[in-house]
Amino acid sequence: MPLRKAKQKQERFTPFLFLSPAILFFCCFILFPLIGAFGYSLITWDFFTQPKFVGLDNYGKLFKDPIALEAVKNTFIFTIASIVTHVGLGLILAVAVNRRIPKFFAYIIRTVFFFPFLLSWSATSIIWSFGLDPTFGVIDFYAGKVGFPQATLISSTWALPTLIMIDLWKTLGFAFIVILAGIQAIPSEISEAARVDGASGLRLFWNITFPLCTPAIFFVSVTAFIGAFQIFEPMYIMTRGGPDNATLSIVQYLHMSAFRNFDIGYGAVISVAIFIVVLIVTLTQFKFAKRWVHEG
């Protein structure tokens, strides 16, 4: 009897043993920093001098800051363009590969479009900033030959569209394979039945393929949103946010405020704003994803 009790006690303790590392790391690297960020957003501090409590002043500053507004505008354009292009081209590619095509051909397409996704943003940025270099860049050279704008990374009109294109080049592979997986999960009986009924081409696409892979498309849109909204590396490495803040992104502005200008409180306010947007989008995703799962 006492033995059994000891065992029961041990069993009550077991879940804690399994969970303690996760809880410890969760608190140290997610929960406490989360609370900290809100705390820091209420002070002014430069890492060195005495921090000063300023209440909501930093938030007020954010709403009156023209550079922040510029960063929000750029990030917004980047995000919308990113979602549209990723979903559109990803869908076209996935449909194209899902036909009866030679195996080798499918392999080439998968390799070519997916490989850039595995590259780091640093490698990607260097490839493109050199390729687009006005003096020796091969892409810039051919762009000039066919009458496209040149030296786009140093033009305040074209720098942001160029970065949008480079982002598409790097991450289209992800949208492509997720949507392809979605299409391939459609039971073949359904599309066969539609084919027997005479549906083909565009009709098959709009009536069968597209509606049945909406969960995949939705997922791609949400991940594209979150990825694009937090975009940092290409601006940071290729354009430094320029020219004239034309490519400054929100996260880059956060980085600048906190780690270049050492305005910790203001950086924290920007990070809180980013968090709130990500939070809303993710919660929306959860809500819709649940509904889709229920509807089958």
Binding site: F26, F29, I30, L31, F32, P33, L34, I35, G36, A37, G39, Y40, F47, Q230, V251, L254, A258, F259, I264, G267, A268, S271, V272, I274, F275, V278, L279, T282, L283
Partner: peptide
């Protein structure tokens, strides 16, 4: 915790790690 981006945790983490 999925919804907490690294951009939010980076400043407090930097202070703590220092």
């Amino acid at each position: 915790g999925l919804m907490v981006p690294p951009q939010l945790t980076v400043i407090p983490s930097f202070v703590a790690f220092r």
